[in-house]
């Protein structure tokens, strides 16, 4: 019945929505930043544990739609063990992929995150996917205040 939506709601996304990874609080986290999407009310808190400039651990709390939950869940998995610079590089790529500005974007360069490429076709949902990454960006830049996608 929802055949048109298969690109947007891939099985991986349902899976992460049902069982979000790293859905926990890191006590005494080095970085803790809140992200908020006022349009749909998605709210998340991202926690980072740093080891020098390497992200040793990442976790989150909050509630959102399937796209935003899957996005932050996947992100916390993927950035673990990455340096801040590598994470920022991924953010840039993710942003390029989801906003669809680069027609020749190579999905193979972004690994697992490619499952979120479907939002390109749904402008109203792009912010759901990018909220996690904007929050991470703020955390890396060590902005402790809440960030918003607006």
């Amino acid at each position: 019945m929802f055949d048109d939506l298969r690109d947007l709601y891939q099985e991986v996304i349902f899976d992460h929505n049902r069982n979000p990874r790293n859905f926990r609080i890191i006590e005494n986290a080095d970085r803790k930043v809140e992200g908020f999407n006022p349009l749909c009310g998605d709210r998340l808190t991202l926690y980072l544990q740093m080891d020098g400039d390497v992200i040793a651990d990442a976790s989150f709390q909050g509630s959102g739609c399937a796209i935003s939950t899957a996005s932050v869940s996947l992100m916390t998995e993927i950035v673990k063990g990455k340096t801040e610079e590598e994470a920022e590089e991924l953010f840039k790529k993710f942003h390029e992929m989801t906003t669809g500005k680069d027609e020749n974007f190579n999905l193979e360069t972004i690994g697992k995150l490619a499952v979120l490429a479907g939002v390109r076709e749904y402008p109203a949902r792009v912010k759901c996917a990018t909220l996690a990454w904007h929050t991470l960006d703020a955390a890396i830049k060590n902005e402790q205040q809440a960030i918003s996608t607006e």
Binding site: L5, L8, C40, I67, A124, C128
Partner: peptide, 11 residues
């Protein structure tokens, strides 16, 4: 989430 409901119904 309502947002998912909205997208699904739109399809």
């Amino acid at each position: 989430h309502p947002h998912d409901i909205g997208t699904m119904l739109d399809s």
